[in-house]
Computed example of a mutant assay.
Amino acid sequence: MEFFSNDMKDTILLGKKLGKILKPGDIICLIGELGTGKTHFVKGIAEGLGIVDNITSPTFSIVNEYTSGRLKLYHFDVYRVNDPDEIEAIGFDEYIFSNAVSIIEWSNYIEELIPKERIEINIEKDISKSVNFRKISINYCGYRYDYIKELSKK
């Protein structure tokens, strides 16, 4: 599925729509260059989950945990991870195989650790249309995520 965002508000709104339908144990892989709006998208997901905390990128801590919503949210940023063993050392499996929603920014850096069943989201800039224009592609792997089709109907 492809969606288009003209500004940060659109990106957050799409994330919020996704957050409202996510289920326990869902894994979301976020891919996109620096400055494409990955963390804004996560802010929207958190809002859709009912999380009221300030969402920040866990660039230096690797993972931020949010527990105030209808589901827990584990937000990973593996941009600075140099070795997959580093992410395994923080108990990565315990996080992603829990009943929380796990979002992994830069998941392509640790692809060998990510389960095959997942939601993949790619955010791309297209400055030929506008400085703030984004194309957001959402795909999923595995039958457990068939419900994601609902997103295109809303």
Rank of each mutant, 00 (worst) to 15 (best):
Asp10Ala: 07
Asn64Glu: 12
Met1Glu: 03
Phe3Arg: 10
Asn139Glu: 14
Ile55Pro: 00
Val52Phe: 07
Leu22Cys: 06
Glu86His: 04
Leu18Asn: 06
His75Ser: 02
Glu47Leu: 14
Glu2Val: 04
Ser68Cys: 03
Ile148Ala: 08
Ala100Leu: 01
Asp93Arg: 15
Glu124Arg: 15
Ile119Asn: 03
Lys72Met: 00
Asp85Gly: 07
Tyr140Gly: 12
Tyr145Gly: 13
Thr59Arg: 11
Ser137Phe: 00
Ile110Gln: 10
Lys125Ser: 09
Gly15Glu: 02
Lys9Glu: 13
Val81Phe: 13
His75Leu: 00
Thr39Val: 06
Gly142Thr: 09
Tyr145Asn: 11
Glu117Tyr: 08
His40Lys: 06
Met1Val: 02
Ile45Trp: 01
Gly142Arg: 12
Ile45Phe: 03
Val63Gln: 03
Val42Arg: 07
Arg134Cys: 12
Ile119Leu: 12
Ile138Phe: 12
Pro24Lys: 06
Tyr95Phe: 15
Glu65Ser: 05
Arg118Ala: 13
Asn6Glu: 14
Tyr95His: 02
Glu47Tyr: 11
Gly25Arg: 06
Gly48Ala: 03
Leu13Lys: 14
Val81Pro: 12
Ile136Ala: 04
Phe97Gly: 00
Ser57His: 11
Lys17Leu: 07
Gly19His: 05
Glu86Ile: 04
Leu30Phe: 13
Ile12Thr: 07
Arg80His: 05
Leu14His: 10
Ile148Cys: 09
Tyr109Ser: 04
Val78Met: 13
Arg80Ala: 05
Gly69His: 08
Lys20Ser: 09
Phe133Val: 00
Glu111Leu: 13
Asp53Pro: 06
Gly50Lys: 11
Gly44Ile: 05
Trp106Phe: 03
Ala100His: 00
Lys154Gln: 11
Phe97Lys: 02
Asn6Phe: 14
Ile87Lys: 00
Leu34Gly: 06
Ile127Trp: 07
Trp106Tyr: 04
Ile90Cys: 09
Leu151Lys: 02
Cys141Glu: 14
Phe4Arg: 13
Leu30Glu: 08
Ile136Gln: 09
Glu65Phe: 00
Arg134Met: 04
Lys153Thr: 12
Ile90Lys: 09
Glu120Arg: 07
Ala100Asp: 01
Arg134Tyr: 08
Tyr147Glu: 12
Gly25Asp: 02
Gly35Trp: 11
Leu30Met: 10
Gly35Val: 12
Tyr145Pro: 13
Tyr143Gly: 10
Lys16Ser: 02
Asn82Tyr: 00
Ile87Ala: 08
Tyr143Lys: 14
Val52Ser: 15
Lys23Gln: 15
Asn6Gly: 10
Lys116Cys: 01
Phe41Tyr: 12
Met8Val: 15
Pro58Ala: 03
Ser130Pro: 05
Gly15Met: 05
Leu34Thr: 08
Asp146His: 07
Ser57Trp: 13
Gly37Tyr: 01
Glu2Thr: 07
Ser5Arg: 00
Val131Pro: 01
Leu14Thr: 11
Ser57Ile: 13
Gly50Tyr: 13
Gly69Thr: 11
Thr59Asn: 04
Val81Ser: 10
Arg144Cys: 05
Asp53Gly: 05
Pro84Glu: 11
Gly32Trp: 13
Ser130Gln: 05
His40Asn: 14
Arg134Val: 05
Ser128Trp: 03
Ala89Ile: 00
